[in-house]
Nucleic acid binder design. Structure first.
Length: 410
RNA sequence: GGGCGAAUUCCCGAGUGGCCAAAGGGGGCAGACUGUAAAUCUGCUAGCGAUGCUUUCGAUGGUUCAAAUCCAUCUUCGCCCA
């Protein structure tokens, strides 16, 4: 432990708020600190937003501390009302369990859960069996409603209406921290900055019930320069599951990041040394494209492995630098029979999932957004034929400037 | 429990009998310009076998030649009073 991990996180830009910086730094020097981050099981895959917190966990683990990944099997039954304008749809127990399993599997790619260097817990194990009256007597007495309502994260909901049901989310999350503190000796909770009030709730609960010393630390949220949450694509979230977002798509997302975000993302989402991060972030003009390529490669490498990262990089270079063809670019396979029975261009776009409806396809063609083998498609009823394919049975279809598909004829 | 008000397309938000597939903005997509960036300008933005047809303005039923718009009931939400 040569360098205090607090300095590492701070230098890389992770830290937003901390309950007690001075004593937390001391704690990091004194012992291997057990800390936790909660993941509510709202979908069947983690997203780029989660990845940032996972990076923080990995930095902590590298520094010798012990991450606890807390799956929100219990808290997801309610749903965090923070910064949401509406109540989330209620999810069934089965869906939540399934999602939690998916999370566990994905997290295992980044952290080794061997009960030694990293642990997993699921708050369903203690929250679901909880007795209401007991809970009120043990935990509820330590919370004042006015205090809770003053929390920044409920402000928005305060105007639109917040149910008692959702108000309990904070209490449950606070209890989680208390439980992990008692059972596992967890002394620190980390989370996105929108979790600040929920985290404080736990820190205070531990102090009130146990006179215990616990800390909270929140992390920067990834946003675009407009302040919008980063990691949204036209298809929705940027998933870590390669079945939901292909490694190539994932790579391209980071390759296309805004200039001003490059240095921040390099610090947060890669393990490159900070001198390198600063050097790359300072590149001017079109030079910064080199930095973006490295950024995309490094993140893809961590998430999908070096092999996929290399493939994505090469496919991107082939497509953009040489206007060429690569084995690893997105591909759709057709048989001769498909062509003979007639594949019109809109069906092809639809097969590639580039359009949701045929009308959208027609519009796109009218706008001049579709190119087949370097020729702009002007006729929406155009049907693929043998002459559109080269000697290797390949045709290239573009949507806009950045999306390129290979059509392979077998 | 009583009174009042609201619900519109991806989001915000106009529209109070036909000219409404529904203004405006945001977001998204495409074109121009560029560096696979930002900014800017322009076009598009319910669906379909498309000069037409079908479905959409919380739900159901009704009035009318004609309903997002009027009436009734219901649901949800907000505000005020208890």
């Amino acid at each position: 432990m040569s360098q205090n991990v607090y300095d590492i996180l701070q230098e890389r830009g992770f830290i937003e708020q901390c309950t007690d910086e001075e004593n937390l730094r001391k704690l990091f020097e004194k012992e291997r600190v057990k800390f936790y981050i909660g993941f509510d099981a709202t979908a069947d895959s983690l997203t780029a937003g989660h990845f940032l917190t996972i990076m923080a966990m990995m930095h902590m683990q590298r520094a010798g501390h012990i991450p606890i990944a807390l799956l929100g099997g219990g808290t997801t039954m309610i749903g965090d009302p923070s910064a949401k304008s509406d109540m989330r749809k209620m999810m069934t127990k089965e869906t939540i369990d399934h999602n939690a399993q998916c999370f566990h599997k994905q997290l295992s790619k980044f952290l080794k859960f061997d009960n030694e260097s990293a642990l997993v817990r699921n708050n369903a194990d203690w929250l679901l069996s909880m007795n209401y009256v007991e809970m009120l007597r043990e935990i509820g007495v330590h919370f004042t409603v006015n205090r809770m309502l003053a929390a920044e994260c409920y402000k928005q909901r305060w105007e639109r209406g917040l149910t008692f049901f959702e108000l309990n989310y904070m209490i449950m999350q606070s209890f989680d921290f208390y439980k992990l503190y008692k059972d596992d000796g967890c002394k620190l909770q980390m989370g996105g900055n929108d979790q600040w009030s929920n985290i404080i709730g736990g820190v205070e609960l531990i102090r009130r019930k146990e006179q215990g010393e616990a800390y909270g630390l929140t992390l920067k949220l990834l946003t675009t320069s407009d302040g919008i949450k980063m990691g949204k694509t036209m298809k929705g979230a940027l998933w870590l599951d390669p079945e939901k977002t292909s490694p190539y798509e994932f790579f391209q997302y980071w390759r296309n990041i805004e200039d001003v975000k490059v240095e921040e993302c390099l610090g947060l989402l890669t393990f490159l040394p900070m001198e390198e991060v600063r050097r790359l972030g300072a590149l001017q003009g079109s030079e910064i494209n080199k930095a973006k390529e490295i950024l995309a490669f490094e993140i893809t490498k961590t998430v999908h492995g070096e092999e996929e990262a290399t493939k994505s990089l090469e496919a991107a270079r082939a497509i953009f630098k040489n206007g060429g063809i690569s084995d690893d670019m997105p591909t759709v396979n057709y048989t001769r029979a498909d062509i003979e029975s007639g594949k019109d261009i809109i069906t092809v776009l639809s097969d590639m999932k580039l359009i949701k409806t045929r009308s959208e396809g027609r519009r796109l063609i009218n706008d001049g957004g579709v190119t087949l083998n370097d020729d702009k498609v002007t006729d929406p009823s155009l049907t693929l034929s043998d002459k559109d394919f080269n000697e290797n049975g390949i045709a290239i279809l573009r949507k806009g400037k950045k999306i390129v598909f290979k059509i392979q004829l077998n």
